[in-house]
Design a protein around this nucleic acid. Structure first.
Lengths: 308, 308
DNA sequence: TTGTAAGCGTTATCAG
DNA sequence: CTGATAACGCTTACAA
């Protein structure tokens, strides 16, 4: 293994000088810096992170805690994770992956063993005791609130929007099965035969819904428009492709890391950021009315409504 | 921060004794062990992993490298990751998450900075230079081959099986769009109107396929059986639910960790394990013929064919 | 602008 | 069965 001392010897300088060149924490003459860098290159030197953590009491690691049972938001979680890792690497940090089955003890462990400098939580429960643990241990943390109150806030936003526009709105929850989708759709069309638009939150019912509409003779978007709240990937797998609202998962990840970097650099605590979702207009929406004009295709707009 | 010395003082023993109690690397009298454990509890002591890594030259970290562009096998990747983390924790290891965009340099970095003791690769390319890097650096590693030759081997297995059973087989590749699915299906039914079964590898075409069959008046499984190669979740979202073959993702993760543990404990290198996939019989398959009997529902069998 | 040296918290060797 | 004590490789005052 090659050490700081090896590099120092080869460059003909003191070990501390090498350290300072690498950290940039004090000015070094252009010439010696050059020599040090050359030695580093030549030896393929990488600082021992353990030693560094011990001496500096900073691990340069972020812990990302993901839900164990990942049935629900898998692609979203994955995208967040990728975003976190990519951004973190850009700041010289590595990312530790933890599952929430360690609970509070996991946070206590990584914090007090100096395994990580900060924690990113992704699946916040309503009574999450890990939040108390974070306050208690004083570890830097950021919470990504994809779940918390998401459905409720979305529904309220839609309600408000509909009210403001004088649109008649019905809310019919249903699970992801074909039968449930069929039942819900039948009920909606029976109660309001003139329904001109559907907003779908549960991406699982998209396939049955599309096929039900097709077999019942309703054309999309001519007879009924559809807006789906789902990943872009799902929206692009139907015919016609769905106008959709996406959770900006990658951005949630990168923003979380940025927040932490600022925070660990002495920034303010308690900051809350709301990230607006993006509406992508595709082929499943058209103006309502007897003579629908062609829908805009492929353009993007950003709505005023926000979710956390 | 509480240290070994704090624990030792409180327990009234030497620091080294505390270390030995924790590591179990030499025998300690029942009584002092008790006292040490009590002190550890009382102080909420967690060893500083950096110091430990420095002194022992083992980080107790596994690096898991996942593909950056995760469009294809997201749920599989996630399940592997969860499996790896869970199993690793059971052995006292933490898991570092890396993306493959660091390439070989990432492996070199975590290995020679002692950030991780071993590496798990998940998306092996045909000419993957990271394999050379692993050999070169000598870092312990295990490759999870979900991609490599997967499609080809699957196809060959199906071919062999069909040939052995005297079944007429056609292979029609198609991408995930509705149009492609429609085209492929139309062509198949035109060429072989009496087709009694479909094997679907591309989970993206499942929704269009089901809906096409329905609208064309073919009942599943009475007229045509379907076996899908997809995650259980996808198989359970259709009506009827699909008989499917699943990649045992969680097991891939846990087995990878077990392999590494054995290997780092002095086990043999170069070991290859083939993990058989599982066939889950659901509602989309029935015996072929003029008078189909009801299909078995929900039972599981394990086929002889294997994939890596 | 650079060098010297005192830690950082563990592990492991060597005595006892 | 237990205690001292010398590494481990780096950072960071403190000097020069």
């Amino acid at each position: 293994m090659t050490t700081l001392a090896d590099v120092a010897r080869r460059a003909g300088v003191a070990a501390s000088t090498v350290s300072y060149v690498l950290s940039g924490k004090r000015s070094v003459s252009e010439e010696t810096r050059e020599r040090v860098h050359r030695a580093v290159e030549a030896l393929g030197y990488h600082p021992h992170v353990g030693a560094r953590a011990l001496a500096s009491s900073r691990s340069n690691v972020l812990a990302l805690i993901v839900p164990l049972r990942s049935d629900m938001y898998v692609p979203v979680m994955m995208e967040i994770a990728i975003g976190v890792v990519t951004k973190a690497r850009g700041h010289g940090y590595d990312v530790l992956l933890l599952t929430n089955d360690e609970g509070s003890e996991g946070i206590r462990r990584v914090a007090s063993s100096a395994r990580a400098d900060a924690v990113i939580l992704t699946d916040i429960g309503m009574q999450d005791d890990r939040i108390a643990t974070i306050a208690q241990t004083g570890v830097d943390a950021v919470l990504i609130g994809v779940h918390i109150g998401f459905a409720e806030r979305t529904l309220r936003g839609i309600r408000d929007g509909a009210a403001g526009l004088g649109v008649d709105l019905v809310h019919r929850p249903c699970d992801g099965s074909y039968e449930a989708a069929a039942g819900a759709l039948a009920r909606i069309l029976e109660e309001r035969p003139h329904t001109t638009g559907l907003i779908v939150q549960n991406e699982g019912i998209i396939p049955p819904l599309m096929s039900l509409l097709r077999t019942s003779g309703r054309a999309v978007p001519e007879d009924v428009s559809i807006v789906a709240l789902c990943p872009d990937q799902d929206a692009e797998q139907t015919a016609p492709r769905l106008t959709s609202v996406t959770i900006p998962a990658a951005e949630l990840g990168t923003r979380a890391v940025e927040l932490l970097m600022r925070r660990m650099g002495g920034g303010a605590a308690g900051e809350v950021q709301l990230i607006p979702p993006t509406l992508t207009v595709r082929g499943s929406t058209a103006p309502a009315g007897p003579d629908p004009s062609p829908s805009p295709y492929g353009t993007r707009r950003t709505p005023r409504e926000q979710h956390q």
